[in-house]
């Protein structure tokens, strides 16, 4: 089972290494990791997707909490939070396929962010499922390169993951 952790950390050099090192040393696998600054410039947020059962999640959470630079660890419940990811697809294109690709982009509310003679770059934001769906379709035309940001997530409603 996959869990999405929202982790607040001190915005200091080396913090990412500490977190990543902890995962590798303890044998946990990071499926996705996204880091960005918060409204407080001294604090960064890491959104980490980790696969594992409840025992693994419990250990990951406790071990993360032991790191001095980690301020707060919160497991986001899937039904009480939403997630987004940005993906860029560089797709082969020719006269015949251009309009079909544009139609797909339209349906997925994606964007064409670069147009070349033989390629287009499609940018899409959404859940992992949505990105998987458009990838499957674009695959038919020949995907040359994929770049994904990793998942970010947030609680629905008034609930927040902030330092108290």
């Amino acid at each position: 089972m996959k869990h999405t952790l929202s982790v607040l950390v001190d915005n200091k050099p080396g913090v990412l290494t500490r977190v990543a090192g902890l995962f590798s040393r303890r044998g946990y696998n990071i499926e996705s990791l996204a880091v960005g600054i918060t409204d407080n410039p001294e604090i960064s947020r890491m959104t980490i997707v980790v696969a594992g059962d409840d025992h693994v999640l419990e250990q990951v959470t406790k071990q993360l909490n032991k790191l001095i630079d980690v301020i707060r660890v919160s497991d986001l419940a899937p039904d009480e939070s939403f997630e987004r990811e940005l993906a860029l697809f560089k797709v082969k294109v020719d006269k015949g396929s251009r309009s079909e690709i544009l139609a797909i982009v339209d349906v997925f509310r994606a964007q064409i962010v670069d147009v070349g003679l033989k390629t287009v770059v499609v940018a899409v934001t959404g859940t992992g499922d949505k990105i998987y769906a458009i990838e499957k379709l674009l695959h038919n035309y020949g995907i040359i390169e994929i770049v994904r940001t990793g998942k970010i997530a947030m609680n629905r409603g008034e609930k927040v993951v902030k330092i108290s």
């Binding site: 050099p13 080396g14 290494t17 500490r18 090192g21 902890l22 001095i68």
Partner: peptide, 16 residues
């Protein structure tokens, strides 16, 4: 040495 001792210290510092 801070990199090397990352998994074997409770915490470490490089003083900048």
């Amino acid at each position: 040495i801070t990199g090397i001792t990352l998994p074997i210290t409770k915490h470490n510092y490089l003083v900048q």
